[in-house]
């Protein structure tokens, strides 16, 4: 899978901004975007959350959730063995039911990429072809507190080791200090570091860490900034900061993606990550995507769940739909 090429991203940004992406120009642009009313946004999200998804719709939704999951392990205690176990789960989520779809990707720290690639073997590839991608967090994840050189090296190494997708973090400190130009340049530079020698490029997910941006106005501006700078995906959170993904924040990011698409025709992906554990909640996200940007966004190139425990809850629900009764935690495997 390859992301947007850097040249077009930069040209597009220049055209949209009407000038070089420095602090002043970006500030003018980002602060000119209509504000967000928190009460109204949360009311809309709550409204979407009341959709009742039953029977055939629920069945479809559960399978689709699995195929949109970035199965994740991001622990200090990760080992090659843990990653192999995760990959095995990703390839065959429910050993008792061969009709269960595979997840979209596994998401690991940069140094675990070779182990993930190795464990996937021939299953490593594009989720559109029924294969599984490898996503690596990079750029001094989760804090992003490091020099640009180290962030770029971090990224380049993961790509060289076979990562198909890079989940980078933005410099929230710089963003909150109004240094939008710096944040833009860093995203653009990381995008450049995603490039492979053959000219293709790893897909870039830009993590906003919405829990540290705090206000919805900030989330909206950071979303625009990340897309302008060339991100292929915008992602809510690292999962290391609370609150992580919420429905209102995801709705807001989807609205940005919808507006960007209307303006440029380009489709940007959205990835809520962290804190989504129940099928019921994940279905609310599917509803929100479908009713905000449209159903065509419910595919691995445009929407992902960053999650680990969600998968097992979906499997339990799936078994319940097939058999008519609930099983239990011991009827799904731990990874």
């Amino acid at each position: 899978m390859s992301g947007t090429s850097l040249v077009t991203a930069r040209e597009r940004a220049l055209a949209v901004l009407g000038g070089e992406p420095d602090d002043a120009t970006l500030r003018r642009y980002l602060h000119g975007i209509a504000g967000v009313d928190a009460v109204g946004l949360e009311q809309r999200a709550a409204g979407l959350g009341t959709r009742s998804i039953k029977t055939s719709s629920k069945k479809w939704a559960l399978d689709r959730i699995i195929s949109l999951v970035d199965l994740t392990t991001l622990e200090g205690a990760d080992t090659p063995g843990k990653v192999r176990s995760l990959v095995a789960k990703a390839m065959n989520p429910d050993p008792a039911d061969a009709t269960t779809p595979r997840v979209a990707a596994v998401c690991v720290y940069g140094d675990m990429v070779p182990h993930a690639v190795d464990a996937l073997g021939s299953v490593h590839g594009d989720p559109d072809d029924g294969l599984i991608s490898v996503a690596a967090v990079a750029t001094a994840f989760p804090s992003g507190r490091s020099s640009l050189e180290i962030k770029l090296a971090d990224t380049a190494e993961a790509v060289a080791n076979g990562a198909d997708e890079i989940d980078m973090v933005i410099d929230r400190g710089a963003f909150l200090a109004g240094r939008y130009g710096l944040v833009f340049d860093q995203i653009a530079a990381v995008k450049e570091a995603c490039r492979r020698p053959d000219g293709t490029s790893a897909s870039l997910k830009v993590i906003l860490e919405t829990g540290e941006l705090v206000t919805y106005d900030n989330v909206r501006r950071a979303s625009w900034l990340s897309i302008l700078a060339g991100g292929d995906f915008i992602k809510t959170s690292t999962g290391k900061v609370q609150p992580a993904a919420t429905l209102p924040v995801t709705l807001l990011m989807l609205e940005v993606v919808r507006d960007w698409h209307l303006m440029t025709g380009q489709r940007i992906g959205v990835k809520p990550a962290g804190g989504i554990r129940a099928s019921k909640d994940a279905i609310k996200y599917l509803v929100t995507v479908a009713e905000t940007v449209g159903e065509e966004w419910l595919q691995p190139h445009l929407f992902r769940f960053g999650a680990s425990s969600l998968l097992n809850d979906v499997l339990l629900q799936r078994q319940k739909m097939a058999t008519g009764h609930y099983s239990g935690a011991d009827y799904v495997t731990i990874d």
């Binding site: 009742s52 998804i53 039953k54 719709s57 629920k58 939704a61 479908a290 419910l298």
Partner: peptide, 10 residues
């Protein structure tokens, strides 16, 4: 099937 044609939920 279209997801947005939610199954009836009476």
């Amino acid at each position: 099937m279209s997801f947005l044609e939610y199954a009836p939920a009476p």
